[in-house]
Computed example of a mutant assay.
Amino acid sequence: MELKGKVAVVTGVSKGIGLATVKALLEKGAIVAGWGRNAPELQHAHFHFFECDVRYSESVQNAFDQTIARLATHVQVLVNNAGLGIAGYLENMSLDDWHLMFETNVNGIFYSTRLVLPGMKELGEGHIINISSIAGTTGVEQMAGYCGTKHAVRGISHSLYKEVRDYGVKVTCLYPGSVQTNFFDNIESVQVTENMMRPEDIASTILHALESHPNYHHVDIEVRPLMPKGKRTK
């Protein structure tokens, strides 16, 4: 897809992967609608922020309606990035924390995707990027809830691409390993280090998938830091 002039929606844009993706899209000439609870520190003529909490369908609908009203065109790219993880043993996990993860990581994808698909199908072109995690391909101790949500993202992505591929719409699921973001702020067992991937690295992979030939489809992309514990000296 040629990104110049295309309209892209990115969720969870206040920082991290979302903000890096917004900046990368803007550099390519895209018009970007950022949906999030908090606005990023970013000023650009082609960036438009709309307050949105993806946990709530009414909030997503409102952000979508405002996006279409302001930009007066269909959405051609959707990056479902908003998400969070809470650590803890399953038996000790609070109902509120469990629901928060599923409402954000899973329901948010449903609420956002269902609104942009009709326009993409009408255009005969579109690309949805869903950010899962390597936790969506395996199990991680004390992360059962988070892993459950990211496995769901994988299942949604695999089913959806088969539903929309014949309309010229792509669905790509991305599985990052550890990234230098605020994701780990509330996970005491993990410390953010320079050996993790950068948000800009993930954004570059998203652009690579978006800019591919119309008949070339990245279904799954797994990315990890090459040296998560640093380079060996001997």
Results as ranks from 00 to 15, higher is better:
E2N: 15
E2T: 11
K6Y: 10
A8I: 12
V10G: 06
T11D: 01
K15F: 09
I17N: 02
L19V: 08
T21S: 14
K23C: 11
G29Y: 11
R37M: 14
N38S: 12
Q43V: 14
H44V: 15
A45N: 12
F50V: 06
C52E: 01
Y56H: 13
S59Q: 14
Q61I: 12
F64H: 11
F64M: 08
T67W: 05
I68Q: 00
I68T: 14
A69Q: 13
A72N: 15
A72P: 02
H74A: 13
Q76F: 03
V79I: 15
A82N: 01
G83C: 07
L84C: 15
I86R: 08
G88T: 09
Y89D: 05
L90T: 03
E91A: 15
M93H: 11
S94C: 07
D96S: 15
D96H: 03
W98H: 05
H99T: 10
F102S: 04
Y111I: 08
Y111C: 08
Y111H: 11
T113K: 01
V116G: 07
P118F: 14
P118V: 02
E122L: 14
E122A: 11
E125I: 06
G126I: 01
N130G: 06
I131D: 06
I134K: 02
V140K: 03
M143T: 12
A144E: 00
C147R: 02
C147A: 07
G148A: 00
T149Y: 02
K150W: 06
G155E: 07
L160S: 01
K162V: 04
K170N: 11
K170Q: 08
P176D: 08
G177S: 10
Q180Y: 01
T181N: 13
N186T: 13
V190D: 05
M196K: 07
S204D: 12
T205E: 11
T205Y: 04
L207G: 15
L207K: 02
E211R: 12
P214D: 03
N215K: 09
V219T: 12
R224L: 04
L226Q: 10
M227H: 14
P228F: 14
